[in-house]
Protein backbone atom coordinates (compact mmCIF):
# COMPACT_ATOMS: atom_id res chain seq x y z
CA UNK A 1 0.00 0.00 0.00
CA UNK A 2 1.35 3.31 -1.08
CA UNK A 3 0.84 6.46 1.03
CA UNK A 4 -0.57 8.07 -2.13
CA UNK A 5 -3.63 5.89 -1.62
CA UNK A 6 -4.59 7.30 1.77
CA UNK A 7 -7.95 8.96 1.15
CA UNK A 8 -8.24 12.75 1.41
CA UNK A 9 -4.55 13.31 2.30
CA UNK A 10 -4.11 15.25 -0.94
CA UNK A 11 -7.12 17.49 -0.31
CA UNK A 12 -6.14 18.11 3.32
CA UNK A 13 -2.55 18.84 2.29
CA UNK A 14 -3.64 21.41 -0.25
CA UNK A 15 -5.91 23.02 2.35
CA UNK A 16 -3.02 23.11 4.85
CA UNK A 17 -0.74 24.74 2.27
CA UNK A 18 -3.45 27.35 1.70
CA UNK A 19 -3.67 27.87 5.47
CA UNK A 20 0.10 28.44 5.58
CA UNK A 21 0.35 30.73 2.56
CA UNK A 22 -2.92 32.66 2.18
CA UNK A 23 -2.14 35.01 5.12
CA UNK A 24 1.24 35.79 3.59
CA UNK A 25 -0.31 36.52 0.20
CA UNK A 26 -3.03 38.68 1.79
CA UNK A 27 -0.40 40.66 3.68
CA UNK A 28 1.67 41.28 0.56
CA UNK A 29 -1.41 42.17 -1.48
CA UNK A 30 -2.56 44.72 1.11
CA UNK A 31 0.88 46.32 1.16
CA UNK A 32 0.15 47.46 -2.43
CA UNK A 33 -3.19 48.97 -1.46
CA UNK A 34 -3.34 52.71 -2.10
CA UNK A 35 -6.04 53.36 0.50
CA UNK A 36 -4.97 55.11 3.70
CA UNK A 37 -7.22 53.06 6.02
CA UNK A 38 -5.51 49.77 5.08
CA UNK A 39 -8.91 48.10 5.18
CA UNK A 40 -10.67 49.14 1.98
CA UNK A 41 -9.11 48.20 -1.32
CA UNK A 42 -8.98 51.04 -3.80
CA UNK A 43 -6.22 50.50 -6.34
CA UNK A 44 -2.70 49.14 -6.53
CA UNK A 45 0.15 51.44 -5.55
CA UNK A 46 3.70 51.31 -4.28
CA UNK A 47 3.34 54.58 -2.38
CA UNK A 48 3.66 52.90 1.04
CA UNK A 49 7.01 51.46 0.05
CA UNK A 50 8.13 54.98 -0.83
CA UNK A 51 6.77 56.15 2.51
CA UNK A 52 8.76 53.60 4.54
CA UNK A 53 11.93 54.47 2.63
CA UNK A 54 11.55 58.08 3.73
CA UNK A 55 10.72 57.33 7.36
CA UNK A 56 13.87 58.04 9.45
CA UNK A 57 12.86 55.85 12.42
CA UNK A 58 12.30 52.88 10.08
CA UNK A 59 15.66 53.56 8.44
CA UNK A 60 17.40 53.64 11.83
CA UNK A 61 15.66 50.43 12.95
CA UNK A 62 16.53 48.67 9.69
CA UNK A 63 20.17 49.73 10.01
CA UNK A 64 20.31 48.45 13.62
CA UNK A 65 18.76 45.12 12.54
CA UNK A 66 21.27 44.75 9.73
CA UNK A 67 24.35 45.57 11.84
CA UNK A 68 23.08 43.29 14.59
CA UNK A 69 22.41 40.37 12.22
CA UNK A 70 25.79 40.69 10.44
CA UNK A 71 27.76 40.81 13.69
CA UNK A 72 25.80 38.11 15.52
CA UNK A 73 25.75 35.74 12.53
CA UNK A 74 29.49 36.19 11.88
CA UNK A 75 30.41 35.53 15.50
CA UNK A 76 27.99 32.60 15.78
CA UNK A 77 29.22 31.01 12.53
CA UNK A 78 32.85 31.29 13.61
CA UNK A 79 32.12 29.70 17.00
CA UNK A 80 29.91 27.04 15.41
CA UNK A 81 32.55 26.19 12.79
CA UNK A 82 35.20 25.59 15.44
CA UNK A 83 32.77 23.55 17.52
CA UNK A 84 31.65 21.47 14.51
CA UNK A 85 35.26 20.68 13.60
CA UNK A 86 35.93 19.49 17.13
CA UNK A 87 32.84 17.27 17.36
CA UNK A 88 33.58 15.55 14.05
CA UNK A 89 34.85 12.39 15.66
CA UNK A 90 33.21 10.71 18.61
CA UNK A 91 34.70 11.33 22.05
CA UNK A 92 33.66 11.10 25.67
CA UNK A 93 31.31 14.02 26.36
CA UNK A 94 30.38 14.65 22.75
CA UNK A 95 26.69 14.10 23.53
CA UNK A 96 26.85 16.55 26.43
CA UNK A 97 28.63 19.13 24.24
CA UNK A 98 25.96 18.85 21.55
CA UNK A 99 23.19 19.20 24.14
CA UNK A 100 24.74 22.47 25.34
CA UNK A 101 25.18 23.69 21.74
CA UNK A 102 21.51 22.96 20.98
CA UNK A 103 20.22 24.40 24.25
CA UNK A 104 19.00 27.66 22.66
CA UNK A 105 16.70 25.65 20.37
CA UNK A 106 14.87 23.92 23.20
CA UNK A 107 14.50 26.66 25.82
CA UNK A 108 11.49 28.99 25.57
CA UNK A 109 12.83 32.24 24.15
CA UNK A 110 10.94 34.49 26.53
CA UNK A 111 12.57 32.79 29.53
CA UNK A 112 16.07 33.12 28.08
CA UNK A 113 15.42 36.76 27.09
CA UNK A 114 14.20 37.67 30.56
CA UNK A 115 17.09 35.82 32.23
CA UNK A 116 19.64 37.59 30.02
CA UNK A 117 18.03 40.93 30.86
CA UNK A 118 18.40 40.12 34.58
CA UNK A 119 22.08 39.19 34.11
CA UNK A 120 22.89 42.35 32.16
CA UNK A 121 21.12 44.58 34.68
CA UNK A 122 22.83 42.79 37.59
CA UNK A 123 26.23 43.29 35.94
CA UNK A 124 25.41 46.87 35.02
CA UNK A 125 25.75 46.18 31.27
CA UNK A 126 24.28 49.02 29.22
CA UNK A 127 21.26 47.78 27.26
CA UNK A 128 21.36 48.39 23.53
CA UNK A 129 23.07 47.16 20.40
CA UNK A 130 26.07 45.50 22.14
CA UNK A 131 23.87 43.68 24.64
CA UNK A 132 21.64 42.45 21.80
CA UNK A 133 24.70 41.32 19.80
CA UNK A 134 25.93 39.16 22.68
CA UNK A 135 22.53 37.55 23.25
CA UNK A 136 21.88 37.03 19.52
CA UNK A 137 25.30 35.39 19.07
CA UNK A 138 24.44 32.84 21.77
CA UNK A 139 21.07 31.77 20.34
CA UNK A 140 22.30 31.82 16.72
CA UNK A 141 25.05 29.24 17.40
CA UNK A 142 22.88 26.12 16.87
CA UNK A 143 21.40 27.57 13.66
CA UNK A 144 24.91 27.93 12.24
CA UNK A 145 26.15 24.69 13.81
CA UNK A 146 23.58 22.30 12.34
CA UNK A 147 24.22 22.93 8.59
CA UNK A 148 28.01 22.88 9.11
CA UNK A 149 27.71 19.65 11.09
CA UNK A 150 25.51 18.13 8.34
CA UNK A 151 28.04 19.09 5.64
CA UNK A 152 30.92 17.66 7.68
CA UNK A 153 29.04 14.41 8.27
CA UNK A 154 28.61 13.99 4.52
CA UNK A 155 32.32 14.58 3.84
CA UNK A 156 34.67 11.67 3.61
CA UNK A 157 37.94 12.04 5.49
CA UNK A 158 39.96 10.43 2.68
CA UNK A 159 40.89 13.71 0.91
CA UNK A 160 42.30 15.12 4.12
CA UNK A 161 44.20 11.91 4.78
CA UNK A 162 45.62 12.04 1.26
CA UNK A 163 46.75 15.64 1.80
CA UNK A 164 48.46 14.70 5.04
CA UNK A 165 50.11 11.70 3.39
CA UNK A 166 51.51 14.16 0.85
CA UNK A 167 53.08 16.12 3.71
CA UNK A 168 50.62 19.00 3.91
CA UNK A 169 50.68 20.58 7.35
CA UNK A 170 47.53 20.39 9.45
CA UNK A 171 46.73 24.06 8.78
CA UNK A 172 47.42 23.72 5.06
CA UNK A 173 45.15 20.67 4.88
CA UNK A 174 42.42 22.63 6.59
CA UNK A 175 42.83 25.67 4.32
CA UNK A 176 43.28 23.87 0.99
CA UNK A 177 41.15 20.72 1.46
CA UNK A 178 38.67 20.92 4.34
CA UNK A 179 37.53 24.53 3.94
CA UNK A 180 36.79 24.45 0.19
CA UNK A 181 34.66 21.34 0.71
CA UNK A 182 32.98 22.74 3.82
CA UNK A 183 32.32 26.22 2.39
CA UNK A 184 28.67 25.70 1.27
CA UNK A 185 27.81 24.39 4.75
CA UNK A 186 29.44 27.43 6.38
CA UNK A 187 27.53 29.80 4.07
CA UNK A 188 24.25 27.96 4.70
CA UNK A 189 24.90 28.18 8.45
CA UNK A 190 25.73 31.88 8.24
CA UNK A 191 22.56 32.57 6.24
CA UNK A 192 20.33 30.75 8.71
CA UNK A 193 21.97 32.49 11.68
CA UNK A 194 21.56 35.82 9.85
CA UNK A 195 17.83 35.22 9.20
CA UNK A 196 17.30 34.08 12.80
CA UNK A 197 18.89 37.24 14.16
CA UNK A 198 17.17 39.52 11.62
CA UNK A 199 13.74 38.11 12.48
CA UNK A 200 14.22 37.96 16.22
CA UNK A 201 11.73 39.96 18.18
CA UNK A 202 11.58 38.77 21.81
CA UNK A 203 15.24 38.99 22.79
CA UNK A 204 15.64 42.39 21.12
CA UNK A 205 12.39 43.57 22.72
CA UNK A 206 13.82 43.00 26.22
CA UNK A 207 17.42 44.04 25.55
CA UNK A 208 17.04 46.96 23.15
CA UNK A 209 16.90 49.58 25.88
CA UNK A 210 15.73 53.12 25.20
CA UNK A 211 16.72 54.62 21.85
CA UNK A 212 17.82 51.52 19.94
CA UNK A 213 15.09 49.62 18.15
CA UNK A 214 15.34 46.86 15.59
CA UNK A 215 12.85 46.43 12.77
CA UNK A 216 10.77 43.70 14.49
CA UNK A 217 10.62 45.75 17.71
CA UNK A 218 9.53 48.78 15.66
CA UNK A 219 6.86 46.70 13.91
CA UNK A 220 5.53 45.39 17.23
CA UNK A 221 5.12 48.83 18.74
CA UNK A 222 3.57 50.08 15.49
CA UNK A 223 1.04 47.21 15.49
CA UNK A 224 0.16 48.13 19.07
CA UNK A 225 -1.08 51.48 17.82
CA UNK A 226 -3.18 49.87 15.08
CA UNK A 227 -3.06 48.36 11.61
CA UNK A 228 -1.51 50.71 9.06
CA UNK A 229 -0.40 50.44 5.44
CA UNK A 230 3.18 51.27 6.46
CA UNK A 231 3.33 48.16 8.67
CA UNK A 232 1.99 46.09 5.77
CA UNK A 233 4.79 47.36 3.56
CA UNK A 234 7.66 46.78 6.06
CA UNK A 235 6.24 43.37 6.95
CA UNK A 236 6.12 42.41 3.27
CA UNK A 237 9.75 43.50 2.84
CA UNK A 238 10.83 41.46 5.88
CA UNK A 239 8.96 38.38 4.60
CA UNK A 240 10.49 38.56 1.15
CA UNK A 241 14.02 39.07 2.51
CA UNK A 242 13.71 36.05 4.84
CA UNK A 243 12.27 33.82 2.12
CA UNK A 244 15.03 34.74 -0.34
CA UNK A 245 17.76 34.12 2.23
CA UNK A 246 16.31 30.77 3.33
CA UNK A 247 15.95 29.65 -0.28
CA UNK A 248 19.61 30.63 -0.79
CA UNK A 249 20.67 28.60 2.24
CA UNK A 250 18.59 25.63 1.05
CA UNK A 251 20.35 25.60 -2.34
CA UNK A 252 23.77 26.09 -0.73
CA UNK A 253 23.09 23.06 1.44
CA UNK A 254 22.32 21.04 -1.68
CA UNK A 255 25.44 22.00 -3.64
CA UNK A 256 27.28 18.99 -5.00
CA UNK A 257 29.83 17.66 -2.59
Amino acid sequence: MNPRRFPFTREISLAVMAYLYVPVVVLIAYSFNANRTATIWTHASVSWYGRILENPSIQAAAWNSLVLAVCAATAATLLALLAALSTRRDFLGRGAAETVLNMPLILPEIVVAVATLLLFVALGVHLGLTAMMAAHTAFCIPFAYLPIRARLDGMSGTYEEAAQDLYASRFRTFRRVTMPMLWPGVMAGFTLAFVTSLDDFLTSFFLSGPGTTTLPVYIFSAIRSGISPEINAISAVMLVVSVLLVALSFFLGRLRR
Binding site: L79, A80, L82, A83, L85, S86, T87, F91, A97, V100, L101, M103, P104, L107, V111, V112, V114, A115, T116, L118, L119, A122, A134, A135, T137, A138, F139, I141, Y145
Partner: peptide, 25 residues
Amino acid sequence: LRRASLLTPAIAVILLLIGVPLCLM
Protein backbone atom coordinates in the same frame (compact mmCIF):
# COMPACT_ATOMS: atom_id res chain seq x y z
CA LEU B 1 43.72 19.62 23.99
CA ARG B 2 43.13 20.74 20.39
CA ARG B 3 39.53 19.56 20.51
CA ALA B 4 38.91 21.32 23.81
CA SER B 5 40.36 24.58 22.49
CA LEU B 6 38.04 24.45 19.45
CA LEU B 7 34.95 23.50 21.43
CA THR B 8 35.36 25.78 24.44
CA PRO B 9 34.51 29.17 22.84
CA ALA B 10 31.04 28.13 21.64
CA ILE B 11 30.22 26.23 24.83
CA ALA B 12 31.47 29.11 26.98
CA VAL B 13 29.36 31.68 25.09
CA ILE B 14 26.21 29.59 25.50
CA LEU B 15 26.84 28.79 29.15
CA LEU B 16 27.72 32.40 30.01
CA LEU B 17 24.84 33.97 28.11
CA ILE B 18 22.17 31.32 28.68
CA GLY B 19 23.21 28.95 31.51
CA VAL B 20 24.42 31.58 33.98
CA PRO B 21 21.41 33.89 33.40
CA LEU B 22 19.00 30.99 34.05
CA CYS B 23 20.71 30.23 37.38
CA LEU B 24 20.67 33.91 38.29
CA MET B 25 16.98 34.03 37.43
